[in-house]
């Protein structure tokens, strides 16, 4: 017998959410969604959540179990029972609950809309279909598997502190068009995606990779857009300057010159940006934490430079 500790919320009856416990015998083979249905059908008909396909295709039943988002229909209930015989169920994070485990997806969809999630070819439509080679399709294969379940959005560390971030799902969807051989707006897209709230605000935590129930794995897609943005010369922002400065630093010495990177990242003519670096710089200097002024190269740095040359960097 397992205890399901479920976060309940019904603003029509009570302003604050609360936890309610249900005891359930998890029979062999029951998915978490089967367990939720059993609770709803036999213990409390008012228990509210979204569901549809039961086959990890529709993306409706994403919830938080034991603090992390997942698709309820894709996981065995028994596998989620903790040592104390409980499973904690909560609504997805970073979105407002409507009732129990159902949340308001409006900000999620608004951000998908923002990235223009449709093909924008330059030429007129051909009489027949637009063809792609297997190699061209492979570039967008993973991102096209996204089922918009919101699991990545829920656990994104940046969205927890900054609503302006487009978030992993919208950015993964953006990669699907940025690297689509049939699309004609690559440059415009990466320019938009390089603005505040876009690709360079991703903090590399890879929570989205961990939570994604499909091969879409947004963090990897975000990195692919970054590479395209740099290739396209969209470099007038701190994120791009940081990547270029970092890469240049390793080329010249084999290691990172921490004195130069912050300055080059904010821009050497950005007086305010440079001024903002002063407090932490001085603080570290007076503590003796500033990196050595004369940056030392690694042994055999010539081999590193040769690798850069060979790869046209």
């Amino acid at each position: 017998m397992a205890t399901f500790r479920i976060k309940r919320y019904n603003p029509e009856k009570q302003a604050e959410s609360y936890y309610e416990e249900f005891e359930l015998d998890i029979k062999h083979g029951m998915t978490l969604l089967d367990c939720m249905n059993e609770i709803k059908w036999t213990l409390d008909g008012s228990f509210t959540y979204r569901m549809s396909c039961r086959s990890a295709i529709c993306g409706s039943c994403a919830v938080k179990a034991n603090g992390h988002s997942l698709l309820a229909c894709q996981r065995q209930g028994a596998h989620l029972v903790k040592d104390d015989d409980t499973i904690v169920l909560e609504p997805l994070g970073n979105m407002k609950p409507i009732k129990d485990l159902a949340v308001d997806f409006k900000p999620f969809w608004d951000k998908i809309d923002k990235i223009n999630p449709y093909l924008q070819p330059n030429e007129k439509a051909p009489k027949e279909e637009r063809k792609q080679s297997p190699e061209q399709f492979r570039l967008i294969d993973d991102s096209s598997t996204c089922i918009m379940c919101g699991a990545c959005y829920s656990d994104c560390n940046v969205l927890e502190v900054d609503d302006n971030f487009l978030g992993p799902a919208a950015l993964a969807k953006a990669q699907r068009f940025v690297q689509d051989s049939r699309d004609g707006k690559t440059l415009e897209r990466v320019r938009d995606l390089s603005k505040p709230g876009g690709i360079w605000d991703c903090t590399h935590c890879a929570e989205c990779v961990e939570r994604c129930p499909k091969p879409a794995q947004p963090f990897h897609r975000i990195k692919e857009i970054m590479t395209v943005a740099l290739d396209q010369g969209v470099t007038n922002n701190n994120g791009a300057r940081h990547a270029l400065s970092f890469t240049k630093s390793v080329k010249s010495s084999g290691s990172l010159n921490e004195n130069i990177i912050p300055v080059e990242s904010v821009g050497i003519f950005n007086i305010k940006g440079l001024f903002d670096l002063l407090p932490v710089g001085l603080r570290m200097f007076f503590k003796g934490k500033n990196p050595p002024i004369f940056h030392k190269s690694i042994d055999d740095v010539e081999d590193v430079k040769r690798i850069y040359m060979e790869l046209d960097e």
């Binding site: 970054m226 740099l230 970092f246």
Partner: peptide, 24 residues
């Protein structure tokens, strides 16, 4: 003689370069 791992930043510029440095 080992180079910087690239911290997931060099790979933003050139994924093959980052892997080559780390494979080295």
């Amino acid at each position: 003689s080992a180079a910087c791992c690239g911290a997931g930043v060099v790979s933003e510029k050139n994924p093959l370069l980052a892997d080559a440095l780390n494979a080295r």
